[in-house]
Design a protein around this nucleic acid. Structure first.
Lengths: 118, 118
DNA sequence: CCGGATCCCTTGCGATACTG
DNA sequence: CAGTATCGCAAGGGATCCGG
């Protein structure tokens, strides 16, 4: 009985760590918006994302995209056009975030209703 | 046709804003871990959460819980024991985060496998 | 036991300007 | 077009101590 409780607790700790791992990747002011933008269009260019995500600067966009690329959420492709354009798309791994994003959208809407009072 | 495209874009912008609303509530180093802890036990005391969320200081826990209470994610109850103990539980609204948290746990586990290489 | 108050350091992030 | 470099502030968050 104590053993069951103990395993229960261990799993809970694992869960908390796993959530933190996720949040480390998704944290910051812009990440999820960027992912949401790319996800919506399947493939999206730098300047297009810059327009989608209102308020972000090119410096930030560049930095965030680089981190997402390192975390294998996003794939970067340079197209040899003149001038150069760069394309971003979600990796297979990145695509698995779609469910989470949809849930976050739903929750955000519900939350606004509750807080602002409809 | 152009109209359809336009509505499509508008909805996308709404989606991005909704995600941001969610993240504003959930952002920071600790929030989701705290919610995860309370959610797991249904009802949890201050000092217990302090133990669950490894690394957090009482100052931070206090601050984060207060914000979550303001955002109606968490309900706070003072028990008249000696010395005083305080109990936290998720509101109905807070409970709707359960799905998101479970998804984040799954994704975090998958992510670690991909990045660390199993 | 549950916090609040203070101090201080680190980080995130914005603004701006510049390259291939 | 897609970034990089530099600067600088404000927020985030840790450590410690105090009080009901």
């Amino acid at each position: 009985m104590a053993c069951i409780v103990k395993n229960f607790e261990i799993d809970h700790q694992k869960g908390i760590k796993a959530v933190r791992d996720s949040m480390d990747v998704l944290n910051g002011k812009w990440k999820i918006s960027i992912i949401s933008s790319i996800c919506h269009y399947n493939t999206r260019r730098f300047s297009d994302i810059l327009n989608d995500v209102v308020g972000i600067s090119n410096r930030m966009l560049s930095k965030e995209l680089k981190e997402l690329e390192i975390n294998k959420v996003v794939r970067r492709t340079i197209l040899d056009t003149r001038p150069v354009t760069v394309q971003y798309e979600l990796t297979k791994h990145g695509l698995t975030l779609k469910t989470i994003i949809n849930n976050l959208v739903e929750w955000g809407v519900a939350h606004r209703k509750i807080i602002i009072g409809k």
